[in-house]
Simulated assay, not measured.
Amino acid sequence: MSIDLTIEDGIATVTINRPDRLNALNQEHYHSLSAAWIEVRDNANIRAAIVTGAGSKSFCAGADLKEFIPNPPGAGEMWLTQTDQLLNRGLEVWKPIIAAVNGWCLGGGMTLLFATDIRIAASHARFGLPEIKRGIIAGNGGTQRTLMNLPYPLAMELLLTGDDVDAETASRWGIINKVVAPDELMPAALEYAHRIARNAPLALQASKELALRSRDVDLATGLRIEQMFNRFLMSTQDASEGARAFTASRPPKFIGN
């Protein structure tokens, strides 16, 4: 029972592997998940990543409250803000990340989902933020990212009722991109990953970073940063290769430089 990381053809797959607890995360799992995301961030051979859960019942049920509530962290840990950073809590990973939701997506599983870029769900998946029913709040970005992903009344419905919704509702609300049959989930996620990974890796990361930072800057500043990023990218070997490949009507061979 662990966080498993595999890499094949430039695609990393991060699997939350604790199916007996619906892939709920204890402190050890959070530590391992942080390490996996750092590897995705820093490994130049990785072009894109998929995150999923082991088994067929659950993507991630969030924090294992049976372990966390009786044993809360010490007060001093409140200020250890760089410890075990996560995709949905502080860690900046600009490579594209695809969620393959294979069942329950609850609590911290939802906030993890909200920190991904493309989201595919099996038809039996369900989504919710039930923390309010347990006397706590949706942490690790739950109260922050929900309103970034949903219109206000829908976000507040999830946050304040704690109820879950099915995959078709999640699709209609815009939480996920596509609903597929369970046996089509990973093939669909891999198809997205390979389609994305064929593009220039520096341009992919720049596009993601600019899009996310646009939420925090005014339009004039965002346009200026975009211009500077593009000037930088035009000087790269990948940009030259992209032009050559287009002229020769052949697929480009990008190297991330």
Rank of each mutant, 00 (worst) to 15 (best):
M1Q: 05
S2P: 04
D4I: 12
D9P: 02
D9F: 12
I11M: 07
A12M: 06
V14H: 00
I16T: 08
N17M: 09
P19R: 05
D20A: 13
D20P: 00
L25K: 10
E28R: 13
Y30S: 00
W37V: 04
I38W: 01
R41H: 05
N43T: 05
N43A: 07
N45K: 01
I46P: 01
A48V: 15
A48L: 08
I50W: 01
G53I: 05
G55A: 04
K57C: 00
K57Q: 05
F59C: 11
G62M: 09
G62T: 10
G62P: 04
L65I: 09
P70K: 09
P72W: 01
P73I: 04
A75F: 12
M78Y: 07
W79G: 03
Q82P: 00
T83I: 07
T83R: 11
D84F: 02
L87S: 07
L91F: 10
I98K: 14
V101W: 04
V101M: 12
V101F: 09
V101Q: 08
N102P: 09
N102R: 13
N102V: 11
G109P: 05
T111G: 13
L112A: 10
L113T: 07
A115Y: 14
D117L: 03
R119F: 11
A121I: 08
A125Q: 08
F127I: 12
G128I: 12
P130D: 07
E131F: 04
E131G: 04
I132H: 08
I132L: 03
K133P: 11
K133Q: 14
G135C: 04
I136P: 02
I136C: 03
I136V: 14
A138Q: 08
A138R: 04
G139A: 07
N140G: 07
T143V: 09
T143S: 06
Q144Y: 14
L147H: 08
L150G: 11
P151N: 06
P151S: 02
L154W: 14
L160E: 06
D163M: 14
V165F: 12
D166I: 05
A170T: 12
S171A: 10
K178R: 01
V179C: 02
P182A: 06
L185V: 07
M186T: 06
P187M: 14
A189Y: 13
L190G: 08
L190E: 13
E191L: 05
I196E: 09
N199D: 12
L202I: 15
Q205L: 00
S207F: 10
K208I: 11
R213W: 14
S214M: 12
R215Q: 13
D218M: 09
L219S: 01
T221R: 00
G222M: 11
E226V: 00
M228T: 10
F229I: 03
R231A: 10
L233P: 01
M234W: 05
M234D: 11
T236W: 01
S240M: 11
S240Y: 08
G242T: 02
F246W: 01
T247A: 13
S249E: 02
